[in-house]
């Protein structure tokens, strides 16, 4: 148990080191000039001296390796730096944006997990029937659907044509964050969350269905049938237990994809969450914010995988703590 924790911690540290080096390298090679991006439309009003001052203030005049060591040194002391575009400490920006995204992502995550699992179990238990065929068709169709396209489609139907949902953002325009009612917040959350969960569902369905058919063809399902168990009984007493485990693992393991999906969904709906902040940081060359988000999301995804791993050990009696990390 202790060695397991130590191993996981070592994994996390090496992962974070690798991710920050890689990310920093990529950003340094990026053709986007942070000063240009910062100055934006005022490019003709800003003279070379002023640009140099900005670059100096941000430390851009120093070589990349020196910048990286300075940044890493501050990181180790817990200082993530200041976001260039928001002019706020990086951690504050991430914290605020994360809270906005959290609702979106958790709603999508729970919805896709539950609905996907139920559909996958139904398809697998009724393999070969028209129910199975239609569920599979639906899953294949969704697997090939780009997130942004689905988001636009939902916007056209529900916001433009039916006018049931707002067209953008997390709150009505002109309303202070403190004055947003619960219903307004939910209303704004609905479409982005639906987009995100509908896209995430197909992997859950296909994975669950595959496991489910495996169980239905297993020797122990056959023996259960010989004992007089009917299909619903096999599903309840044998299959669910064996299928829920990989499903939960998958669900935690897909946290990374959820993150990626939320970037697209938030972009389409102009939802001011972490995903949008990532895009802005990237496009406008805000290196401290970008690296901060990357590190936080790496920890987030790592935590998801670790939870999956721990759950496996708790639920499956055949896996112990001391074997393979």
């Amino acid at each position: 148990m202790l060695s397991y924790i130590l191993r996981r911690a070592a994994h996390l540290l090496t992962l974070l080191a690798a991710v920050s080096i890689l990310c920093f390298g990529l950003v340094s090679l990026s053709p986007i000039d942070p000063v240009d991006a910062y100055v934006g439309a005022d490019v003709f009003k800003v003279g070379p001296e002023q640009r140099e001052k900005i670059a100096q203030r941000w430390g851009l005049d120093k070589p990349p390796v020196e910048r990286f060591t300075a940044w890493a040194g501050n990181m180790l002391r817990g200082d993530f730096g200041t976001s260039a575009i928001f002019n706020e400490p990086v951690l504050d920006v991430i914290g605020k944006r994360f809270m906005v995204s959290l609702w979106l992502m958790s709603l999508a995550w729970v919805l896709s997990g539950l609905v996907g699992f139920a559909l996958g179990v139904a398809a697998g238990a009724m393999e070969g029937t028209w129910i199975d065929t239609s569920i599979r068709f639906y899953a294949y169709l969704l697997a090939g659907t780009p997130t942004f396209w689905l988001g636009l489609l939902l916007l056209i139907i529900f916001s433009v044509k039916l006018q049931l949902t707002p067209i953008c953002c997390a709150a009505p325009p002109g309303v202070l964050p403190g004055d947003v009612t619960f219903w307004q917040a939910v209303q704004h959350l609905l479409l982005p969350a639906a987009t995100l969960s509908i896209v995430g569902i197909s992997a859950v369905i296909m994975h669950t269905r595959q496991k489910m058919t495996q169980v239905m063809h297993s020797d122990y399902a056959l023996f259960a049938r010989a004992q007089g168990e009917r299909t619903p009984g096999i599903v309840r007493h044998h299959a669910v237990r064996n299928v829920v485990l990989p499903a939960i693992t998958l669900q935690f393991a897909t946290l990374g994809e959820l993150f990626g999906g939320s970037i697209l969904a938030e972009q389409v709906f102009s939802y001011p969450g972490l995903g949008r902040a990532t895009v802005e940081a990237g496009v406008r060359g805000d290196v401290p914010l970008l690296l901060g988000i990357v590190l936080v999301s790496a920890v987030f995804v790592f935590a998801g995988n670790t939870v999956a791993d721990i759950l496996y050990r708790v639920v499956d009696p055949r896996i112990g703590w001391e074997r393979a990390a």
Binding site: Y220, L222, H238, R241, N242, L245, D316, P317
Partner: peptide, 14 residues
């Protein structure tokens, strides 16, 4: 009633 061949006919998680 059937007595199957091996322990593989029992559900490994129950």
């Amino acid at each position: 009633a059937l007595i199957p061949q091996s322990v593989g006919f029992l559900n490994p998680l129950v």
